[in-house]
Amino acid sequence: MEISVTVNGVKHTAEVEGRTLLVHFVREQLGMTGTNIGCDTSSCGACSVHLDGEAVKSCTILAVQADGTEITTIEGMAGADGTLHPMQQAFMENHGLQCGYCTPGMVMAATSLLKENPNPTEEDVRLGLEGNLCRCTGYHNIVQSVLAAAKA
């Protein structure tokens, strides 16, 4: 069926199969490959994007379910002039990433977290990121990044 989705401010109208997942739609049909896939059980959060301003796992949403919504992916976070989003900047300054594969999902989850809780404690951040797995950083610097972004 045909769907219209606004992704990073641009409206896209496209034909999708019922079974097409939002993450496949964004990656394969729109060619925005910044959103990664890390599992098949909605466990890892690598595919997190914002749907109408809130972090969701784009591997667990059908593209047809996203019809008419506004999606923000990692490609939509930095400014048009290339200025990093404060969360991206905080991840860079605090070495909150290594291989970078979980990073887009982490950044999307973390910005959503701060929107709901602008002044989190370390425990709030750790619990708030319970749905995102990282194999490189041991999370220490990710947590520091989010706390730094909250203060920025």
Binding site: K57, T60, E116, G128, E130, G131
Partner: peptide, 9 residues
């Protein structure tokens, strides 16, 4: 329930 992303949906 689940995690924040799950709870958003």
């Amino acid at each position: 329930v689940g995690d924040p992303q799950v709870r958003h949906r």
